[in-house]
Write a protein that binds this DNA or RNA. Structure first.
Lengths: 214, 214
DNA sequence: ACCGCCACTAAGCGCCCGCTCACCCTTGCC
DNA sequence: GGCAAGGGTGAGCGGGCGCTTAGTGGCGGT
């Protein structure tokens, strides 16, 4: 009876907050269509059709096609910030928290690949104002990961010379999962999350905790 | 007088092989436009305009807009395979060759970001036949990197449990450079190449050569 | 001088896009 | 039952899209 959290496909559903039911169905249809064909190649008729409505129905709930992308992008980025913030603020040393951040962030990109693709790769399709808003959220994402790495360096747990460069690389690695991951492939999102957490700990030269090398 | 190799911007120009001069100018204009706005958001009028021609001129040299993307994608992927093959077949141990492969691959993605963006991110805009052809080239790219890592594991230079997973991660890291790298940013392509080579050597647990960990 | 050749253009065809508008059902309140 | 509200539809608008076609201008060969 409470808000559903998962579909059978394993895709997370943070769309409970989208309030009129028809608006949510349209948004979900837009996510699917944008992920499959890209924003510019998707027609409003396609979105409405997937939601089982006429083309005009879209404009009752959204002013333009771009507003759909904007809403999707903002909700997705807020979720991303939340995931990383939770990991960053959890208990344990820098290594545990970095591993936690990477594995949960990767699980989100792999399991919710449809959503993550739109969120991470359609940013340039937004207008200047909307893009500026989203970029502010991205800076928060960067800051969370950089914070963990900085702390690990200070405490001596990590051995990193270029903190900002390593932060970019870690985030890049996680984000790009949305591009190549395939739900029908040989790995589960959990497995990729574990593998990537291990790889990232190696990248920062973590001295203990979960490194499990050799 | 010989074929130019670089522009002022530092963008490599492997387009010397595109033979009629007008066809090359159109292809270059298409690369720019596709990279800036994406394939579907780019109009044939825009491409022709950038090349200083009328919209119809495009169809003298290319059958369709998609043929432009196909040609760009194939030439770019062939260049990518060549870069990795050269590094993989060079002298030195697995660590040197892997570092060489990563740094040159990253340099290509960063310096030729315009081209690399189109090559790496517009694959889905191709039709089934063209996409299949490009995917074959991608498998060669994967095989080159996997080969180096396998050899390093066999020789004991690397400590990697999941060779295929690590290969995917290494390539993913390099490819995603084309998404975030900015020529006006604080790093040169060479610096990113060096940083990434170091990070990748850490990922594979390289025991010597270039690791330079404190 | 003449012509054939062909890269290139001006104009435009047919199509489908994002989006709008006039209208139609239900639903809930009195 | 009357009626306002609002989610939904069918038809269609203006426009820009990919691409075509008839014609043009300049150049090389004889």
């Amino acid at each position: 009876m409470s808000t559903a959290e998962e579909t059978a496909g394993g895709e997370a559903q943070p769309w409970g907050e989208v309030t009129p039911d028809a608006a949510r169905r349209l948004l979900l249809a837009a996510v699917e269509a944008f992920a499959e064909r890209g924003y510019h190649a998707t027609t409003t008729r396609d979105i409405a059709g997937r939601a089982g409505m006429s083309p005009a129905a879209l404009y009752i709930h959204y002013k333009t096609k771009e507003e759909l992308l904007h809403r999707i992008s903002r909700i997705g980025h807020e979720k991303a910030v939340e995931i990383l913030r939770t990991a960053a603020r959890s208990e344990g040393g820098p290594a545990e928290r970095l591993a936690d951040a990477v594995s949960s962030f990767v699980r989100w990109h792999a399991g919710g690949r449809t959503t993550a693709r739109v969120v991470q790769y359609e940013l340039d399709s937004l207008g200047p104002d909307a893009r500026a808003e989203i970029l502010a959220l991205r800076r928060q994402v960067d800051a969370e990961v950089r914070g963990i790495i900085e702390e690990g360096v200070r405490s001596g747990d990590f051995d990193v010379t270029d903190v900002q460069g390593t932060t970019v690389a870690v985030l890049s690695l996680c984000i790009d999962v949305a591009r190549w991951f395939n739900l029908d492939g040989p790995r589960t999102p959990e497995q990729v999350g574990e593998l990537y957490a291990d790889l990232v700990l190696r990248m920062v030269g973590a001295r203990r905790a979960g490194a499990a090398q050799r």
